[in-house]
Amino acid sequence: MDVEAAKMIGAGIATLGMAGAALGVSNIFANFLSGALRNPSAAPSQTGNLIFGMAMTEALGIFSFLVALILLFVA
């Protein structure tokens, strides 16, 4: 197979890692929402944790994007 084509295919496969990040982020928000609806008075104090958890999870999706970039431009 042509190396250039293999790189493109590899970069495309690498983006699949974002599905995991999508599951993780949606899990965080779904659980926050169900918790916040049960106890709305405690919800505002947890916004910091929510944003923090979102950023931590989202970073893993960003890593797969990074792998795609490295395959396209560096490797």
Binding site: A55, A59, I62, F63, L66
Partner: peptide
Amino acid sequence: SVRLFGNILA
């Protein structure tokens, strides 16, 4: 470092 860089770059 990669979290900040990747988010902004993406």
